[in-house]
Write a protein that binds this DNA or RNA. Structure first.
Lengths: 357, 357
DNA sequence: CTGAAAGCGCTTACAG
DNA sequence: CTGAAAGCGCTTACAG
């Protein structure tokens, strides 16, 4: 047992007293600022070590309040009829915004239309003009995203990716699901539900399937499972670039006619509601339906038993964590930030209540 | 647009200036402390409203640092060979502890042996003697828990329940799963996996099944699903109060002999590993096995395909949130705290990686 | 290279 | 009932 001194002093003051220097010098050492004699620096550092000193983040942040605000730029798709999904990440971002506002952080939104690549490019330019202190993006268009990421790298602005990843570029971290495993998991669910003699169908519904990294990765994972544990003979493929209901319903009807043994359908994104609508209209809710995302429309079908499984990747949390990791990095200069792979939740009519937000 | 004045002042200072009172008075009003003339109080409150003033929690907490520490008592089962599970909530509690320590909060642990009711009572007494500022408990033994809860109520100490609930007592909130739905969800999974002509088995393994609220609730939910969508004829029951492997294996072997059609087994707690061990020993990993908890032992079986589904209820998060909700309540005097029903995660060999802690 | 002073926004004795 | 002063632990000009 070491005799603990009556430490009326603590923190920087105690360090200053022991090292026989002023608070200013202690501060310079702690924050690695220039202008301290090596000898002094060493002495102070030794005491810091000895005391196992941990700065009080409250006090630090309070003292910094007077200094300028930190500006975080957030780039993500706007919310449209077609992309209700993006409401969720935005909610998470706003939640984080509210929490850290009082720490002198300010979040600036940049929205783009997912179908307009030039609009994305334009927003990237605006961000670069405004040179924020941190950047959070959904890298929907790879080329322009890389432009921004390179800019950030040069300017030493931390850049966080969300929802889907572009590896091998200098980014602070990626926050989102491991999409391959998401598909693989779907394969597994299909396997559990497949009755004897049945077939499964995989359905991609999107304007640009070939350039949609997310869909391709999920499909890869799904097929990997089939090759491993089942057989591709048991699988029917469908790609729909016409995303209208009539078109989808038409093709599905034809395919079901052709492959009467289809017992399970896996839709690789949130458009699963189109398939649900169709299944319901033909009175075939016995077919197991698996799809994506905790959207009101999808939940309706889930509750009614038309959709059986929804895979969900915590969109709010992605937004929240995206902002918070920038905040942590910039304010508390936390060390290396790790990628955060979001869990892939399996949601059914029996547990969906507990996944609200 | 209102002309915004050059507010060099803000916060309490600005309020004091406008109301023509001192900081002390403003503080009294903000914190509802006595000793302010009604007229003054009203004037100050009006300005607070007008300014839409929000106190800076950083500054508040920093100022309070000098005051005494807040002491939180945490009561939960200790970690033994038999109850590795409780490591997880403890981790969450420790994580919260680390985060809020610098805000002058101190967590005190009280452990008990789940098999010794008198030990639980003893710890309850110790807590009451120490009169902490907040209490977080796992109410394993109902009677003693109620004693503690009543004590808290009288002393106005906030009390949070974790893991299982005792409703209708004055508690700040409950943090844990809705156990009925957990069983119901299991019924649903069984339904999806059940092939034609197969039967399912439900297995309870615990010393005291009849007094184990958690197990009973899950079983209720499970049976409810069967009554609703399947038939009880398709179900075989097994209660094991002898929790040793030999006994379990013996009974299971006999039952499987009797009911050869059993294709799925649902174990209502983390002892699913005993059944997994048996299934593996008799080479029947084709039987679908569903159980509970993200424990190393269970994960091993999950990865090897012996266990198919693990239902998990975020034990770390329960501990973390339990502490944090007390903290929020005591430090920021957040208003009514709501119960937080933890999601029931469905974990398989394809998504378990993302549920680590 | 170093120190003394002022300040971040709030709270608390203490004195009247 | 009210105010002036000191302090929470850290940071930042400014002066030397």
């Amino acid at each position: 047992m070491e005799g603990k001194e009556d430490n009326s002093l603590s923190g920087v003051k105690e360090i200053a007293r022991r090292a026989n220097v002023s608070l200013g010098t202690v501060d310079r050492v702690i924050n690695n600022r220039a202008g301290v004699a090596v000898k002094t620096r060493n002495r102070v550092n030794a005491i810091i070590e000895e005391l196992n000193y941990q700065p009080n983040v409250l006090a630090r942040r309070l003292a910094l309040t007077s200094r300028g605000t930190l500006r975080l730029a957030v780039l993500l798709p706007d919310i449209s009829e077609e992309t209700e999904y993006w409401k969720a990440p935005l909610e998470g971002i706003n939640k984080a915004d509210l929490e850290i506002r009082q720490y002198g952080v300010q979040v600036e939104h940049y929205f783009f239309d997912q179908n307009v690549q030039s609009g994305f490019a334009q927003q990237v330019n605006r961000i670069m003009e405004n040179t924020p202190d941190g950047v959070l993006i959904t890298p929907t268009f790879e080329k322009e995203s890389i432009v921004l990421m390179k800019f950030c790298k040069k300017k030493k602005i931390p850049c966080v990716l969300m929802n889907s990843d572009i590896p091998d570029q200098q980014r602070l971290c990626y926050i989102g699901p491991e999409l391959f495993d998401s598909g693989y998991l779907s394969g597994q669910l299909v396997h559990y539900c497949l009755k004897d003699g049945q077939k499964a169908m995989i359905v991609n519904i999107a304007r640009e399937i070939e350039s949609n990294v997310a869909i391709l990765r999920k499909e890869d994972g799904f097929l990997a499972y089939f090759r491993e544990k089942l057989s591709e003979d048991q699988l029917v493929h469908l790609n729909m670039t016409d995303t209208g209901y009539a078109a989808v319903a038409g093709r599905l009807t034809a395919l079901l006619e052709e492959h009467k043994q289809i017992g399970i359908i896996y839709v690789t994104n949130s458009r699963v509601s189109l398939v649900a609508q169709w299944l319901e209209s033909i009175g075939r809710s016995d077919i197991v339906l698996i799809g994506y995302d905790y959207l009101d429309k999808n939940l309706d079908y889930l509750k009614r038993g038309v959709i059986d499984f929804l895979l969900c990747e915590k969109p709010q949390e992605q937004g929240y964590r995206g902002v918070m990791s920038l905040f942590q990095y910039l304010v508390f200069s936390t060390t290396v930030q790790d990628d955060y792979l979001i869990p892939i939740d399996i949601v059914t009519s029996a547990n969906y209540r507990y996944y609200r937000n």
